[in-house]
Write a protein that binds this DNA or RNA. Structure first.
Lengths: 156, 156
DNA sequence: CTGAAATCATTTGTATACAAATAAAGAAAC
DNA sequence: GTTTCTTTATTTGTATACAAATGATTTCAG
């Protein structure tokens, strides 16, 4: 039934010299970013073990490098909003991958560290994570991968 | 307090010849895509009128080109899961920007069209949407923009 | 003509994503 | 020492995002 009975009408043709054809969804950077991200997440979900999500993994890996670390700082380092990192940390703590404790020096703060299970989960999955990035970028040459990284950093 | 008392330990050093330093979150394609997407969404949200979200806008613009169109098809064309497009269409219908009706030829289907208000909202915001993409890509030269688009398509 | 497979839509559940409001605690200014 | 500002964390609400299950309807194979 799709479009079978009705010819598409470019309603804004003639308006201000810019036709509707000038704006194609498939060419918009937002659309391209969303699609690329979705495919990456799908690859991640299908290959990562222990039902870890992309953001849970990011939090674990970053915490391993920064620990001990405050929750707000971990959120900053992993590009997550304060409400988002709260939820991610809660779920990781619930799975006993992360330990939380009050900061003796500053009662406002929550101090995060990886548990032994958390450290082990990171160790076990580093090569998997590497393979995930590899699969996401499989269609690109090494030079193209470097270029993509540079261009994405430029627009972030 | 961050890392003040504890030197970072690269626990996996010596394991299989690949150090933890080989996996830096900030270099991962997933992280870069997520950050670029977040910045784009923030720009979109701050500039788009009528509290339209990126996915609502995508649905409106695509529907304008495809209408009349089934819900499942609109979801496919806008890279949205069947549960997701259902929610997006519900919110647009609730705002009277989209009309839904059963398909006389196929009782399984929901046929979508834009209302007059929906058409008007698209017309009013095409140049805004164009400016949003422009701002997202402002740091890139025309050649870099084309390259980014091509690379993102290759990994989608 | 009948049964199986496929399609479309809805629902439920879980996980982000983030704005905004709120509260507690620490830092800074006076 | 007090007041104001900033920081950290939690909570609430709204919007995706998608897997999985379910039901109705259409299509296809035999």
């Amino acid at each position: 039934m799709e479009n079978q009975h009705r010819k598409p009408l470019n309603r804004s043709e003639g308006h201000g010299g810019r036709t509707a054809n000038a704006y194609a969804l498939a060419d918009q950077i937002g659309f391209l970013l969303r699609q690329a991200n979705q495919r990456h997440v799908a690859i991640f979900t299908s290959r990562m073990n222990e039902k870890l999500t992309t953001t849970q993994w990011a939090a674990l890996v970053k915490l391993r490098d920064l620990q001990p670390c405050s929750q707000v700082n971990l959120g900053r380092e992993t590009a997550m909003d304060v409400a988002t990192i709260k939820g991610v940390v809660d779920r990781l703590a619930k799975r006993n991958l992360v330990r939380t404790a009050p900061d003796p020096a500053d009662a406002r703060r929550l101090v995060l560290t990886l548990t032994d299970e958390g450290e082990a989960a990171v160790d076990r999955n580093l090569s998997v994570a590497h393979d995930i990035s590899e699969e996401t970028l499989a269609a690109l040459s090494p030079a193209e991968r470097a270029m993509l990284g540079e261009l994405l950093r430029k627009i972030s």
